[in-house]
Amino acid sequence: MASVLEIQNLQVSYFSREVRSRPVLSGVSFDLMPGEILGVLGESGSGKSTLAASVLRLLPPNGQVGGGAVLFEGKNLLQVSSEELRQIRGNRIALIFQEPSLALHPTIRVGEQVRRVLAAHQSSGKNDLDHRTREVFNRLFAQEADRILRSYPHQLSGGQRQRVLIAQAIACNPALVIADEPTAALDPVTQMEILRVFRDLREHLGLAMIFITHNPALLAGIADRILILYAGQVVEWGPAETALRSPKHPYTKALFESIPAGTGETEKSRKTSLPVIPGNSSPSSLPRKGCSFEPRCPVRMDVCREFEPPLVKLGQSHIVSCFKYKE
């Protein structure tokens, strides 16, 4: 089966006046199958939001793609004209942004905001647009779809606003939805509801999705495959179940261990210090050469300081970037 999206060796840097250009993504490659949900896991500074933005060329003015390709429906999105790109944005690939309270226009009714996305891509008449808008709202809101459609963002709850963002994203029946931390601003119960909406959409619309988050636990039960980013590089990529249950890369392992046991907490484990990853991943503390995780790695070797680790294929589709493993 042909992939929906293929990213090859993507390089992105940010430049500023004080510092020379700083790589944010260096050599990221992966592909996405139709109907697949890929979970992209990364902490702040890993480049996960840059990844989302660079697929649709929405980088801030100081961001620059240094190389690579983003292949979608037979085109390299890094090279298409801006009008062609506009036709793809929101229509074939839709983005869901982080903060639902900031990603909606404050003084336009939410129904109109969805309608305008439709109008930007379809030349159908007013009635058709209204009809389709209503249809999308009915899909996402079990009750009161009509009232919500006429509301302004500030009159809605966080969960409702997030659903409006989803409505905007699916209005044109895209082939791919990229959601960047879509639940970070929500409380757990609302977060659960939104995850349920995503699962439901995949089932009924068959759209492929990139689900970006910093919380590994969120990916359990939603992602098919998981891509783990550290300092702009893929450190591990594999089926969700394997990657979450038995991660291989030292970073992934350490990250998962630092999460408390939750309901598995016992009187003995409670209030004990958690295993942490020493140091931090701020750009200034990254090594110049070798593996970027080496300074914080509990199992580092001499070779890690000198050379970048290769991508090692462990199972059928489980890939790890570490010298500890051999094919």
Binding site: L95, F97, E99, L102, A103, L104, V117, A120
Partner: peptide, 17 residues
Amino acid sequence: HAPFLLAAEGHGIPPRT
């Protein structure tokens, strides 16, 4: 540079609009 404008751009809203 407000996020909602970036979001609208990401939805393919034409520049003039």
